[in-house]
Design a protein around this nucleic acid. Structure first.
Lengths: 231, 231
DNA sequence: CGACAGGTTGACCGTTATCAAAGATCGTGG
DNA sequence: CCACGATCTTTGATAACGGTCAACCTGTCG
């Protein structure tokens, strides 16, 4: 193990495994076993990692960079599903079911990933059932979140969806509520099922009502969180 | 075992276990073991089985009847998430995560369920890891479906969502394409994030365009499936 | 047979998409 | 380090999709 840690230049990519919630409860020895099977990969900005219809054969864990997961609807319009940051993973859905991706994964910036092959992962799932339980928990989370999101689309106006999204991004910084948008407003529009124009207009309106204060392109301050959530 | 099968009046409720995809791959002996832990329950039409905020402690498997799963959004509007028929189950999400339900479950008609207690289920998951894999597969399915639904809400017009829903309900009957709506139009409206009025109007419009033919309240025939999907 | 929930139809209007054009920002390469 | 282009963002004008309210109709079930 000490030997491995010394081997930084070639093995550093494996470190990301220890960031992943579905693995980080394992014993060091088990973790090492998994690290042995991991393959590094890197993608240039804009490069596609997988696309809808592709056969699925790996779990991708983000080591460095950012990945956009998006779907194309029946009529060809794009919807952003999520943004992956280091420690997040993707490709898991297709591993347990149809084997075919329904979404697209694209590197937002130059990105490094670790991949675990389907067959290796299945071996670990059988060997260490606790991993299944962790994935089950992760999936539960995602399902709740996805169904909550669906319900919001079904019942809330765009204005409200924006307000709710802002509320979820709030971070407390010495008493005042700051927001750092995790994506461009264009992507945010796609994520929230609206247009960049509407995002821009609603944020301006929020500002005029004294609810927020925009600072630069991706930052803002929440002045009246309660009122924002009453919208 | 033969003894158990003889005991129909008191044990018939257990039969539903064998309908459930996450259990039906097990050996008869294992299945029996699970059946031993099952508790029957019954709910009158309209009765609430669990509500958002309730502590979760069981998996509910529908034996007979119908259950509506719905959410209330932040602003208090209702969205129908799914309808459970015999063999379907619910309550699984809260078992693996927060322990608290986010949705409501309500009997649509008089309904019989089998419940498996959280602790019993967890025991089985450890004892028979194949169950975890089945649930993982079920969750993958649900996630794909939920994310597909979210993407539709985000990108498709109401008219298109209705058309896509109809297309998913189609059943081939001696060459012609029939549809039996699985719920009232009121519930369908809630499921699709629209209003009964709009559902009614769009179906009438489809009929005027010669795409469908409505027969009674919950039945129709698809005349031009291709054109319907181009909308 | 009556009551009630579900369904339909009409009129109206608000929210939000669309199209267009100008302005800001970022990354890139010279 | 600056300049350029590409992309993102903003603002305006316009239209339409779909929600809301109201009234009426219909089927279903006690």
């Amino acid at each position: 193990m000490a030997e491995k840690r010394a081997c930084n230049h070639s093995c550093a990519h494996q470190a990301c495994i220890s960031l992943v919630p579905i693995f980080n409860h394992l014993e060091p020895a088990q973790m090492d076993e998994i690290m042995q099977t991991v393959q590094p990969g890197s993608y240039k900005k804009g490069e596609v990692i997988y696309r809808a219809g592709d056969q699925s054969d790996s779990l991708y864990i983000v080591n460095k960079g950012k990945i956009r997961i998006y779907r194309l609807s029946e009529s060809g319009k794009e919807q952003l599903v999520r943004i992956l940051n280091p420690g997040n993973f993707t490709g898991e859905l297709a591993l347990f079911q149809e084997n075919v991706h329904e979404a697209y994964a694209e590197a937002v910036v130059d990105t490094e990933v670790c991949t675990i092959k389907r067959s290796d992962l299945q071996e670990f799932l059988i060997k260490y059932p606790s991993i299944s339980l962790k994935i089950l928990s992760e999936f539960s989370n995602r399902l709740e979140k996805s169904e909550r999101q669906t319900a919001r689309f079904a019942t809330e106006r765009v204005e409200t969806r924006i307000a709710l999204f802002l509320a979820e991004c709030v971070e407390d910084q010495d008493g005042s509520l700051h927001i750092q948008l995790p994506m461009s407003k264009k992507d945010l529009a796609s994520y929230l099922g609206t247009t960049p124009e509407t995002i821009s207009r609603r944020l301006t309106a929020f500002e005029e009502q004294g609810l927020i204060k925009q600072v630069g392109q991706r930052k803002m301050e929440i002045l009246k969180l309660d009122d924002l959530l009453l919208i």
